[in-house]
């Protein structure tokens, strides 16, 4: 194996600093004892973490985000598994069009999706409702789940299912005993990626929430655009730690690169 030279090492260090700097300052600022954003903080204080407890809207928004993420990731995963099996295991007329449709939310600018959902939900009288939000999120995260599940399905040897059928298993048994266990890493990876995407989603959500269904990113966004106090930093720090914990778990059980690269199939 050829190793990197000095230039490559320096480049990588500078790059890592660039990638981590904004996260480091957010975490640093959140420990300030002062009433304004300062970095490095003049002292270490948990003042702004205690302040989170005095602002129940942030906590409510966080709970809303978790509920939304769990509901939409689960629905998306459940509908993506059969769709991925259909698309991944054989050619049929319209297959490419179907796949393109399910991946299209990636190509449509999110702001366009946001206003389209707003228009649709307000005409249906569903604007600002929890389930309205859930189904909008399902549309946005389906491409992520589908790509990962599809990668597992196409990696599957089709003769395994045929072998099970030849031994007398019904279609449902084949799915439950053979196919599902084989694609489960992709399914779990897809669910987690979908949850995180939903949990972090801002651009679409900002159009379709009302004060009762505000999510954490929307709450943070409106807070940042109105005032700048270290409260946003402490909330962000908690969100970063939550994500990092989730990330480390995923990296252990599935591999972060596999999750985000999708095993080379796009």
């Amino acid at each position: 194996m050829i190793r990197n030279g000095l230039f490559a090492k320096l480049f990588s260090i500078v790059f890592a600093v660039f990638m981590l700097a904004p996260l480091v300052v957010v975490i640093g600022v959140s420990f300030t004892p002062e009433g304004f954003l300062e970095f490095p903080p003049s002292g270490i204080s948990l003042r702004w973490f205690r302040a989170i407890l005095d602002n129940p809207d942030f906590i409510e928004a966080a709970i809303m985000s978790v509920q939304l993420g769990v509901a939409s990731a689960t629905i998306a995963t459940v509908i993506c598994i059969p769709a991925a099996l259909a698309i991944g295991s054989g050619r049929f007329a319209g297959r490419d069009a179907l796949q393109a449709l399910f991946l299209s939310p990636l190509t449509v600018p999110t702001v366009v999706l946001g206003i389209a959902f707003l228009r649709f939900l307000s005409m249906m009288g569903l604007n600002g409702t929890f389930w309205g939000l859930v189904f909008c999120h399902v549309v946005i995260i389906v491409p992520f789940v589908l790509r990962l599940v599809l990668a597992s399905v196409t990696g599957l040897d089709p003769s395994i299912a045929r072998a099970a059928t030849s031994l007398g298993a019904s279609d449902w048994t084949v799915f439950r005993r053979i196919t599902l266990p084989a694609i489960i890493p992709g399914v779990v990876g897809g669910w987690v990626l979908a949850f995180i995407t939903s949990f972090d989603e801002l651009t679409v959500t900002v159009f379709i929430v009302n004060p009762a269904t505000t999510t954490l990113p929307v709450k943070l966004f409106s807070h940042i655009t109105q005032t700048t106090d270290p409260l946003v930093a402490s909330v962000s720090t908690v969100a970063i730690l939550f994500t990092v914990a989730l990330m480390l778990i995923v990296d252990r059980i599935y591999g972060l690169d596999r999750l985000l690269i999708g095993e080379g199939s796009r």
């Binding site: 996260l23 300052v25 957010v26 943070l220 994500t243």
Partner: peptide, 15 residues
């Protein structure tokens, strides 16, 4: 990639 863009952009605003 997994951390909200809002949080990352807040970091840049501070910087």
């Amino acid at each position: 990639l997994l951390i909200s863009v809002v949080v990352r952009t807040l970091g840049w605003a501070i910087l």
